[in-house]
Design a protein around this nucleic acid. Structure first.
Length: 852
RNA sequence: GGGCGGUUAGCUCAGCUGGCUAGAGCGCCUGCCUUACAAGCAGGAGGUCGCCUGUUCGAGUCAGGCACCGCCCACCA
């Protein structure tokens, strides 16, 4: 780490530095603390486990940056900190991916058989499962990579089965024939949450059914093929038109089935014909109506999406083809009364994109209401805080209307149900039953079932391990909004049920990053931006900073220039550090040794910045944390303090020891402040600080909180005033055409510049020892003015014009202020401090006008 | 259909419990290669805060309505 090397590295080059720093962190073991103590003393976060076959997208990168800020910040507060890492087996997603690979090889999972197929998926995981881990490393995420978990680890499987069996014993998990969302794409049932609505154009057919006594009724439907499964016709109880028909028997066309005309308030008299065909076997509403009226539940469409053997001539046809044939047959009988184009929303599988086929199926369900109750209470009473606030309401709303969860999936990749059958017997247990002739239920559990156990199954539950004691409950759960119900709510329920404690104290729901044009970022739309590419281009610090800076309580558009801003910050800090490190006296260690007003000022400003950071982190306000850091580094440290310090630092004759110590101290505090946001550049700079090798990694440093005695209002006021004066003077100089380098003879006639006189003169290039000639111009500054003396080569016309413009502005503002103060309502009703402030402002403006 | 959020400079966004002469970054204009950084420095232009009503001494900030935009939830054939 030689002086020369530092001298030559004029830019921060993330590509060459980051891998090295990353390796040092990994080798240090810092991210893998020994479990000790209890969760109350420690800090932990369980990462939302990415899909094992996945790769890093913007959501991961943002969430990674957020969690890493929290983790690094708390680790640097000296807490034993663990960020639990692992991946999710992601049932459908992974199975689909491997199936596609098999198809490309000209084979299929059926050809392989279940056992070989599952072996293939494990192989796939060995090959592709570490991508996302390496990508998180590149981001600088200080996850515990040494203790990686997978939701199909043996121990994890044991936890899942135990939970299943326990809930079954409590009667909360049960098997039922029920209408489920059947996804013909993955050929599995899926849960309500995996269904999305999609708008399609359909035809609404009006079909005439015969009713006994030579009467008839016309119903409207978009799915004529389900007529074959109709078991009733329903009308509204108050519908005068059909009053006579209620209780009569209708005949279902084509199948000639006798079916009652029933009255049910669900029917909307205004829609269509006001009469509704009832198909309990293939429609969720009809299913409910059917159960209310004790109707038969007939299935005509099978799990393959084709008409089943009960449909006679139609058997074997895909439902859509059957529709045309059914319509043709109805047409032949003259039963199609009308057809109208109809645009509506239909349920579609989120996974496969195929249209959901509601059908009755024997599946396993979990009753949710009893589990939801304590999970609602935990959020209501604040044991779990959800940020930002609106999400809390969304959570409660959903939980209060929770419905049973279909947990069985007809897949091969996942946790196979711990259920065995033999004839009429059913055995549910963590161990297979005794005796012969048992077959295990082939179904696996919904992936989210195992994810629900994540915060404790990763820590060794059901055993009370040191890790579980040390890190459960975790502190924060940070996630995207789309899995608040799918995952977060279920973790709270399971945590409370099995551990008796909430799984985390705070839930932070972060922004969704949209494409720059406001559309969703997605591969298929071509709107995705790969965070790894961005890391390569700009560095991990830049990407972290940028994502944090653009995040907020709501969705945001991706902003490339925030990433660039982050890169600039890293580079700025790097160069500011070079300046300090190359300029300080040899052999001096960092220590607070303020000698001058500006030394006190910067010390005070650093404390303010630390307070800002602490507040922002406590409020999950990451964009202000990042931008506040930027402001401090640019607007205070670099623009002013480093510039103010230069003459002293460059004065070879002076004793620079105190200044050097203080400068290094300020740098140290800045690095500590910045590290959670931009860990790489700060760690790199840290390694150059005198005495750094003995102090180890910055990432592992336990940092003091802010020191309140260093907050110095007096220094802030005085230096602040000098800064304002310099700005005014620079603006004036520029406005009157003075060359930047040219000194101007001037006289300072303003209050409060005792210690700052020389600095102001230097920054504004004033020659303050220019005698006592009559001034030719005057520049107002706080507390008075700077009078410009003859001899400066400036444009007097421009100066006058500028002065006039300024005077006009001030006069306008004075008029406004006077008007306000003349208003009796204002003086009488506004709070006293506000009125006083207004009076002070008016006085200030008047003196400014005098000076101008 | 219900709920939530947004609409502030050319762009992306800040503006907490009402007191603002409305800010930042980028972009733009002007001037500077000033011995940390030209991926830099200094200065500057640029906004009737979506629209309408109201509350108030005072509204970007609060209330009501309207108009767009986005998201979530929901079983109208």
């Amino acid at each position: 780490m030689s002086h020369d090397e530092l001298e030559s590295r004029k830019r921060f080059e993330p590509a060459e530095i980051e891998p090295r720093i990353s390796q040092r962190w990994l080798d240090s073991g810092l991210f893998s603390p020994e479990p000790a103590g209890t969760a109350a003393d420690n800090y932990s976060i369980a990462v939302p486990p990415p899909n094992v076959t996945g790769s890093l997208h913007m959501g991961h990168a943002l969430n990674g940056a957020i969690q890493d800020v929290l983790i690094r910040y708390h680790r640097m507060r000296g807490l034993r900190t663990r960020w639990i890492f692992g991946t999710d087996h992601a049932g459908i997603a992974t199975q689909t991916k491997v199936e596609q690979a098999l198809a490309a090889d000209g084979t299929s999972k059926e050809e392989l058989g279940r056992e070989d197929f599952v072996a293939r998926v494990w192989e796939w995981r060995r090959e592709h499962g570490s991508t996302i881990r390496r990508q998180f490393e590149r981001l600088g995420a200080s996850l515990d990579y040494r203790d990686e978990r997978f939701t199909l680890d043996d121990a994890y499987v044991a936890a899942v089965l135990r939970v299943f069996v326990a809930l079954h014993e409590k009667g909360l998990i049960y098997r039922d024939r029920y209408l489920v969302n059947w996804d013909p794409g993955s050929r599995s049932a899926i849960s309500d949450l995996e269904v999305v609505q999609q708008e399609v154009d359909d035809v609404l057919y009006h079909v005439r059914y015969d009713v006994e006594g030579g009467r008839s009724v016309v119903v409207a439907t978009v799915r004529p093929e389900t007529i074959l499964a109709d078991t009733a016709v329903a009308v509204h109880p108050d519908d005068e038109r059909y009053r006579e028909l209620v209780g009569a028997t209708a005949t279902i066309p084509l199948v000639e089935r006798r079916a009652p005309v029933i009255a049910d308030a669900y029917v909307q008299p205004e829609f269509g014909t006001g009469a509704l065909k009832i198909t309990p076997g293939h429609d969720p509403n009809d299913f409910d109506i059917g159960r209310r009226h004790g109707l038969e539940e007939i299935s005509v469409i099978g799990e393959d999406g084709r008409m089943n053997e009960a449909t006679g001539d139609f058997a074997g046809l895909p439902a859509l083809e059957a529709r045309e044939r059914v319509v043709a047959a109805l047409e032949a009988e003259g039963r199609i009364v009308a057809r109208e184009p109809y645009r509506h929303e239909v349920p579609v599988s989120h996974r496969s994109g195929e249209r959901i086929e509601p059908l009755i199926s024997l599946q396993w369900f979990m009753a949710m209401d009893r589990l939801a109750e304590p999970a609602i209470a935990a959020v209501r009473d604040g044991r779990v805080r959800i940020h930002p606030e609106p999400q809390r309401k969304v959570y409660l709303e959903w939980m209060e209307n929770i419905r049973p969860w279909c947990i069985s999936r007809q897949l091969w990749w996942g946790h196979q149900l711990p259920v065995w059958y033999r004839g009429e017997e059913t055995h549910v247990g963590t161990e297979p039953p005794e005796g012969d002739g048992w077959t295990r239920d082939p179904d696996v559990l919904d992936t989210w079932f195992s994810s629900a156990l994540w915060p404790f199954a990763t820590l060794g539950w059901p055993h009370m391990t040191p890790a579980l004691r040390a890190f459960y409950p975790t502190d924060v759960l940070s996630t995207a909004r789309d899995i608040l119900f799918l995952w977060v709510a279920r973790m709270i329920m399971m945590g409370l049920e099995f551990l008796g404690q909430v799984p985390f104290h705070d839930v932070y729901v972060h922004s969704v990053i949209q494409a720059p044009d406001g559309r969703r970022m997605s591969k298929s739309l071509g709107t995705g931006i790969d965070p790894v590419d961005e890391i390569e281009r700009h560095g991990a610090d830049a990407v972290r900073f940028g994502l944090l800076a653009m995040s907020s309580g709501q969705d945001v558009r991706y902003s490339a220039n925030k990433i660039e801003q982050g890169q600039q910050l890293a580079n700025k800090l790097w160069n500011a550090s070079r300046f300090a490190l190359l300029g300080v006296a040899e052999g001096v260690e960092p220590a607070p040794r303020p000698e001058t007003l500006e030394d006190r000022w910067i010390l005070s400003r650093v404390q303010r910045a630390k307070r800002m950071m602490a507040d922002c982190i406590a409020e999950f306000d990451f964009s202000h944390a990042a931008l506040g850091l930027y402001d401090f580094v640019y607007g205070e440290l670099c623009d002013w303090y480093l510039e103010m310090v230069k003459p002293r630092l460059y004065d070879e004759g002076a004793d620079r020891e105190a200044l050097s110590a203080h400068l290094l101290f300020v740098l140290t505090e800045t690095l500590e402040l910045a590290h959670p946001v931009i860990p790489f550049v700060t760690e790199e700079i840290w390694s150059y600080l005198p005495g750094a090798p003995e102090r180890g990694l910055l990432a592992g440093r336990a940092v003091e909180g802010l020191e309140p005695t260093w907050i110095d209002d007096d220094a802030e006021e005085r230096v602040g005033r000098a800064i304002e004066a310099v700005r005014a003077l620079r603006g004036w100089r520029d406005g009157v055409g003075l060359q930047p380098g040219q000194a101007v003879p001037a006289r300072l006639s303003a209050e409060g510049y005792d210690e700052m006189r020389e600095q102001v003169a230097r920054f504004a290039r004033l020659d303050l020892d220019a005698g006592d000639a009559e001034p030719v111009a005057s520049v107002p500054i706080p507390g008075g003015a700077v009078e410009i003396l003859p001899g400066g080569a400036f444009d007097p016309g421009a100066a006058d014009a500028r002065r006039e413009r300024r005077r006009a502005e001030i006069e306008a503002e004075i008029a406004r202020s006077e008007g306000k103060l003349a208003n009796q309502g204002f003086v009488a009703k506004a709070p006293e401090p506000v009125v006083d402030a207004e009076r002070a402002k008016l006085a200030r403006l008047r003196s400014e006008l005098d000076a101008a």
